[in-house]
Measured scan of single mutants.
Amino acid sequence: EPREEEAEKYIKRANGDYDKAQELAKKDGNEEIAEAIKEYKKR
């Protein structure tokens, strides 16, 4: 799923820090991806 791939990219950029990844996504205006990262975190 493209959303998950995007989320993974942010998580990698944030060195595995989900909260930081979420912030990066929000900064880029990717609210949807920020949500996907939140879902990811719950797994």
Rank of each mutant, 00 (worst) to 15 (best):
A34T: 04
A7L: 13
E6V: 08
R43Y: 08
E31V: 11
A34G: 05
E31L: 14
E31I: 13
E8P: 05
K42L: 07
P2H: 14
E39I: 06
E31T: 11
G16H: 05
A34P: 01
A34Y: 07
R13E: 13
K20L: 15
E5L: 14
E1M: 13
E1N: 15
A14I: 01
K20N: 04
R3Y: 14
D17G: 02
A34Q: 05
K41A: 11
G16S: 02
D17N: 08
E5V: 14
K26P: 01
R13F: 10
K42H: 06
A14Y: 02
K38T: 05
D28I: 02
E31Y: 15
E5N: 14
K9W: 13
E6D: 10
L24H: 04
K26T: 09
E5Q: 12
R3H: 12
G29P: 00
D17V: 02
E4K: 11
I37D: 02
G16Y: 10
A21I: 01
K38R: 12
D28E: 12
A14N: 01
Y10P: 03
Q22T: 09
A7H: 05
Y18E: 01
K27E: 12
E1Y: 14
I11H: 01
K41L: 08
A21N: 00
E4M: 15
Y10W: 03
L24N: 05
Y18R: 02
K38S: 08
A34M: 09
I37A: 00
E4Y: 14
G29R: 04
R3W: 15
E5M: 13
K41P: 04
Q22S: 10
A25S: 02
K27D: 09
I37N: 01
R13W: 14
A36C: 09
I37M: 02
A34C: 04
K9I: 11
D19K: 08
N15V: 04
I33E: 04
K9R: 11
P2Q: 13
A7E: 05
K9M: 10
E32P: 06
R13H: 07
E5I: 13
K38G: 08
L24E: 07
E31W: 15
L24G: 01
K42R: 11
E23Q: 09
I33A: 13
K38P: 03
R3T: 13
A7I: 15
E31H: 14
A25D: 00
I37S: 00
I37E: 02
K12W: 07
K42E: 13
G29A: 04
K27H: 10
A36L: 15
K9Q: 11
N15W: 07
I11M: 05
K27M: 14
Y40L: 15
D17P: 00
A7C: 14
G16W: 10
E6S: 10
I33Q: 03
K20W: 11
Y10K: 03
E6M: 12
L24T: 04
K26A: 08
R3L: 15
D28S: 04
A36Y: 15
E31G: 08
K12C: 10
N30Y: 12
I33N: 01
E23Y: 06
E23C: 09
E8S: 06
E23N: 05
A21Y: 00
K38V: 07
D19I: 08
D28A: 05
I37P: 00
E35P: 01
E31Q: 09
E23I: 08
Q22I: 15
K9N: 11
E23F: 06
A34V: 13
Y18D: 01
A36S: 07
K42I: 07
K42D: 10
A36K: 13
K41F: 07
E35T: 08
E8R: 12
Q22H: 10
A7Q: 04
A14Q: 01
A25T: 00
